[in-house]
Design a protein around this nucleic acid. Structure first.
Length: 594
RNA sequence: GGGGGUGUAGCUCAGUUGGUUAGAGCGAUCGCCUGUCACGCGAUAGGUCGAGGGUUCGAGUCCCUUCACUCCCGCCA
């Protein structure tokens, strides 16, 4: 027998009564009755109650023992009387009567309690992550993460994908996020970059003829953190396929997402065939390219109403004349909502930096009228027109905002979420996936007015190659797509551009000369010149998938050893200073800030 | 880089209009307790009120500066 345990802390049942057993684990909780003492012994698998009475010479030793001490306990399994059965734990019908106990790992006074559902300051949790990870909820989250990754890996293999590793030390690329750089000792003055994603490698794998590739790939981007974005590093299910069109990629990923989410969550999936929404439609109807489709509210453009002579909402009319637009959100059957509901939303909008949200409610006695502060500005005919555009009905309310396109997208997107939450319209018990498709190839930088790649420079533009109008680059769409679930961007992908001439052409529009492309993307462009298959792929974010499945709002809750917002690891003290010799070997010196 | 929130005992928090000796629960220590499972009861210890400066007879509380954590904007092909 193993010297530490014959069973784990989740094993023992009624059938084991009478057996001599050996258990090892942490003291989760003690309940000391003076002459009798209960210990909840915990390991990865569960909890077993152990009991000792004063007759036992170990009694006073155990009485003094710190919680979270690691012990091994040997004793006899006994059944519990009916009144004392604990249905909360799997082993609750039995307990272990302690005969002997050995301390395997002492524990100092705890900086944070392990046995507690309380929330703790992030700082202390991260510093003592090994204690934090013993706590039930996060321990289960991390196990879930492991199971999700195993499941995905198996599914991918089953679908005929090959798993490969790609380099961690690679070259810096000019596009995209800020790189993490690693100085090269053997090549002084030169740097590696950690990969932001294995983008070029996975395309090279396709060129190498492997047909279908995947990897649970670490990705490194030196950008500021958000609640759903770890600073530094995160993981993607990186995948790429040869001889495919967009729909082929969709099929693989839809299957995978549906099976994964069905296996690991009881929430319902709104539509197992994910709706396809074009980028431009998404910005109009949802104000965002990551729409939360659980939210039934839609945005409509009603700018033309303000060109009518029978509408006298002069502030908006003037703005519209100067090029602004008006967009609105309809809420159904809200005519009986209290005034405070509307005013709160208006007030909230002002806090968001908008000039507020005007509103009115459509009513009908003899005629159709609009009630509310700005209702008087609308004629019956104009209201009918609004109802036609927006599908609003009598008893519905309309919130409107006026501004330029960007401002409107911003405020209506936020308002759509805010109003739906106030009205309780979001079904928290569901996953609503969709594909956002037809991204533009290029966009104009709002400051420099330069044309830039809007997403991935390696994406294939849509349309017959010889018919693409390169004179109007902003009109070129790409085979570029995102998966969104509940308003969270899970991944983006594309059918790639495997034609070098076309690649040069597109890069030249974004201001890259042929020489620059050859220099910066030499591996890629060279490879594409030696018989490259048409290919495409996608890279769903593992951390965010697990976050959705674990019903967590913060990515650190599904990350074993996360860094804090300033990209520091408080447990390992990273980043840290290095000694002079290390710098010297690398040929580096640094200037202290100010 | 910018904006918001938070910072009081080991942990989670309360602390009124600026007013006597800064409190509670958990944890720790000591004692009592034979069926608990958030066991119960009693006692004790534990505080640079994030730091620095200012206003004031008097500051945890007001003002300024600064630091840490966090959320958001920018950023994230």
């Amino acid at each position: 027998m193993n010297k530490y345990r014959s069973h784990n802390c989740n094993d023992l049942r009624i059938k084991d009564v009478g057996k001599k057993v050996l258990l090892s684990g942490w003291i989760n909780k003690k309940r000391d009755h003076g002459n009798i003492l209960f210990i909840d012994l915990r390991d990865n698998y569960g909890i077993t109650q152990c009991i000792i009475d004063k007759e036992n010479p170990n009694f006073s030793l155990i009485e003094k023992m710190q919680l979270e001490t690691v012990v091994s306990i040997d004793g006899k399994v006994v059944n519990r009387s009916k009144e004392t059965i604990n249905k909360e734990i799997n082993t609750g019908e039995v307990e272990v009567s302690i005969e002997n106990l050995k301390v395997l790992g002492k524990c100092k006074e705890l900086p944070l309690p392990v046995f507690s559902d309380q929330e703790y300051a992030e700082e202390i949790r991260l510093k003592y992550r090994f204690l934090d990870l013993r706590r039930k909820k996060i321990h289960e989250n991390i196990i879930l993460r492991s199971e999700v990754i195993s499941f995905i890996r198996n599914e991918m293999k089953r679908k005929g994908f090959l798993e490969f590793q790609t380099p961690i030390l690679t070259s810096s690329s000019p596009e995209g996020a800020r790189d993490f750089l690693v100085p090269s000792r053997l090549n002084p003055g030169k740097f590696y970059a950690l990969p932001q994603a294995p983008q070029q490698f996975k395309q090279l794998i396709m060129v190498s003829g492997f047909d279908k590739y995947f990897q649970i790939a670490p990705c490194f981007r030196d950008e500021d953190a958000r609640s759903d974005r770890s600073p530094g590093e995160f993981y993607q299910l990186d995948l790429e396929m040869s001889f495919v069109e967009q729909e082929d990629v969709f099929k693989v990923v839809e299957d995978l997402m549906v099976s994964t989410f069905m296996k690991f969550s009881n929430k319902k999936i709104m539509s197992k065939k994910f709706p396809r929404i074009t980028y431009s439609e998404s910005l109009l109807k949802y104000g965002s390219d990551k729409p939360d489709l659980r939210n039934p509210l839609l945005i409509n453009d009603i700018t033309k109403i303000f060109l009518r002579d029978d509408v006298s909402f002069e502030i908006f009319k003037k703005l519209v004349k100067n090029g602004s637009s008006v967009r609105c959100i309809v809420t159904k059957k809200t005519h009986n909502m209290p005034r405070s509901f509307f005013d709160n939303i208006d007030k909230w909008a002002k806090e968001q930096g908008a000039s507020g949200l005007a509103y009115f409610t459509i009513e009908k006695e003899k005629n159709i009228t609009a009630k509310g502060p700005v209702g008087k500005f609308f004629s019956e005919e104009s209201l009918k027109e609004i109802m036609k555009i927006t599908d609003a009905e009598i008893g519905d309310s309309i919130f409107l905002s006026c501004g330029n396109k960007k401002e409107l997208e911003n405020i209506t997107s936020l308002a759509r979420d805010k109003i739906a939450r106030d009205l309780g319209l979001i079904d928290e018990d569901s996953f609503a996936f969709c594909w956002v498709v037809d991204y533009p190839m290029f966009e104009e930088n709002s400051e420099s007015k330069k044309i830039e790649f809007s997403h991935n420079p390696f994406s294939m533009p849509q349309g017959e190659i010889d018919k693409i109008n390169f004179q109007k680059p902003l009109d070129i769409l790409a085979y570029q797509y995102d998966i969104v679930c509940n308003g969270i961007e899970l991944s983006s992908g594309a059918i790639r551009n495997h034609i070098p001439e076309l690649m040069y052409k597109l890069f030249s529009i974004a201001g890259y000369s042929k020489e620059k492309v050859d220099q910066k993307f030499s591996g890629m462009i060279n490879a594409l010149s030696y018989g490259a298959p048409p290919h495409g792929g996608i890279a769903p974010g593992i951390d965010r998938i697990v976050m959705l499945l674990a019903n967590e709002k913060n990515i650190r809750e599904v990350t074993m050893f996360p860094m804090n917002q300033n990209a520091q690891d408080l447990m390992m003290n990273a980043p840290s200073e290095v000694n002079e010799n290390q710098l010297k070997e690398l040929g580096l010196s640094y200037k202290t800030k100010k």
